[in-house]
Structure formats: structure tokens, C-alpha cells
């Protein structure tokens, strides 16, 4: 496994896109979070907004860059034919995919942590100015607060799981355009399906199995009882999606010709 890890790390490190996409993850996440924090306000009468969720909203945008990074980590090789060399040098295909997943996890953890910390910092700086003060019923954003810490750590893990889900899908479809299309449908389009159906039971079910809605439940710190899933259970749904995608992609990688 060490050889595979080293090879995958070298490949990913030396592709120009990787650095740019990691920067995009950080920039998109922090910028969108800051923009969201700047547009909401909380009057003296109080408000229903969840300050932790608002300051982490950029994760919904930043995840797009994470998904593209993860997809390109494998479809880039199919595009150039590099995959044949890779599999000739490292014939244990499951291990190759595991090594890719490990390297991606590390990179996403690092970039995600920076992005989430930047977002929390932006929220901490901007939100009090918009009325999110203890006087209006919202304590200042702080990572020493249990639910806020869970939201921040959970958001980093969320990004990692998005990377793994995208990698699994990309291993299965082997083409960057198709893989990105599939991942974006799974994330964004699936997330709004519950709002397009009026039946409450269907809404709840679709919300619970949608990778983005369920996964982002981990960001909620207020009104937890109104959520269809508890925060960690929601992240668990996304983890199940990622595991299924990796298993499916991995088995297709093993049985198909490259």
C-alpha cells in the first residue's frame, strides 16, 4: 500500500489542477459563507436563523470544487490513457483506488479544515454586526461551544465524504463530464427534490436519503428537533452513499478492462 500511496500522491501533487482546485475549495467556501453572513440580519425581536449554519453555508458551494478534484483524480487518467500504465505498474486495482481515496481524504481534510475555519472566522467577525448578539438571543460563535464545534468538524468530514462519493462515481463512469454531471445531480438536484413534492411523507423520505440535505444536517445547531434526521445520523447517510459509490466503483474497476 505504501508504494501505491506514494505513486498516487506524486501523480496528484504534480497535476496543476490539484493546487488550483484546493485553492478554489477554500476561496469559494469562505467567500460564500462571508456573503451569506453579510446578507442575513437578526432584529432585536430575535430570529429563527442558525448562526453556525449560516457561517458554514459556503460548504454547499465549495463542495463543487471538491467533487471536481475527486472526479479528475481518476477520470484524468482515463482521459490521457495513463490509467493503463497505472494498472500495469500496480495490478492490485482495489489498492490503487484505496490509495487514491486516502490521498484525496488527506488533501480534502487539509483544505476543508482551512475553508471551514475561515468560514467560522468570517461568521464570527460579520454576524455580531448584523444583530447576532447575546442581547438578541445568539451567543457569539465559538468553537468551544459543543454544537458549533460539531458543526465545524462535521463540515470538514462532510467535504471528505463528498470527495469519496465523487471518486466512487468517477471510477464507475470513467469520464469526467459524465461523472461531474452525475455527482452534481446527486448533490444539488436531489437536494431540491423534496421541495418540489407536496406530499409531506415523500418530502421527509427524500430529504432523509438526499446526500446533501442529510449530510448538511451536521451543521444544524438550533431547532434540532425539527430536522428529519439527527446531525450525526445525517452524516451517516452521506457516509453510506460514499461507501456504496466506492464499493460500486471499486468492483467495476476490478472487473472491467481499463
Amino acid at each position: 500500500m505504501r508504494r501505491e500511496l506514494r505513486a498516487e500522491w506524486t501523480k496528484l501533487r504534480t497535476v496543476a489542477d490539484t493546487g488550483r482546485l484546493l485553492l478554489a475549495v477554500i476561496a469559494l467556501t469562505v467567500a460564500s459563507s462571508a456573503a451569506a453572513a453579510a446578507t442575513v440580519s437578526c432584529p432585536a425581536a430575535g430570529c429563527d436563523h442558525d448562526p453556525a449554519k449560516i457561517s458554514l453555508i459556503g460548504v454547499q458551494v465549495g463542495q463543487a470544487a471538491v467533487a471536481v478534484l475527486a472526479v479528475l483524480a481518476i477520470t484524468g487518467e482515463y482521459g490521457t490513457g495513463m490509467i493503463r500504465t497505472t494498472l500495469a505498474a500496480m495490478p492490485r486495482r482495489g489498492t490503487v483506488l484505496a490509495a487514491k481515496a486516502t490521498v484525496l481524504t488527506g488533501l480534502t481534510l487539509a483544505a476543508g479544515a482551512v475553508a471551514v475555519l475561515g468560514s467560522v472566522l468570517a461568521g464570527w467577525l460579520i454576524l455580531p454586526g448584523n444583530g447576532f448578539t447575546p442581547a438578541h438571543g445568539h451567543p457569539f460563535l465559538s468553537l468551544s461551544d459543543g454544537p458549533t464545534l460539531r458543526a465545524a468538524v462535521g463540515s470538514v468530514l462532510y467535504l471528505v465524504l463528498i470527495a469519496l462519493l465523487s471518486l466512487g462515481v468517477a471510477a464507475a463512469v470513467r469520464d469526467s463530464a459524465t461523472a461531474i454531471g452525475v455527482v452534481f445531480v446527486l448533490l444539488y438536484v436531489f437536494s431540491i427534490l423534496p421541495f418540489m413534492i407536496s406530499d409531506p411523507d415523500w418530502q421527509r423520505l427524500l430529504w432523509q436519503i438526499s446526500p446533501m440535505n442529510a449530510g448538511l444536517a451536521v451543521q444544524a445547531t438550533t431547532n434540532l428537533s425539527s430536522l428529519p434526521l439527527s446531525p450525526w445520523a445525517g452524516l451517516g447517510v452521506l457516509a453510506a452513499w460514499a461507501a456504496a459509490a466506492l464499493l460500486g466503483g471499486g468492483s467495476l474497476l476490478r472487473v472491467r478492462d481499463a
Binding site: A64, V68, V71, L72, T75, D175, S176, A177, I180, G181
Partner: peptide
């Protein structure tokens, strides 16, 4: 000229 960038 690259599908990933264009689709995104």
C-alpha cells in the same frame, strides 16, 4: 476544450 471545466 476540457470537459470537466466546461461541464462545471
Amino acid at each position: 476544450r476540457r470537459s470537466a471545466a466546461a461541464v462545471t
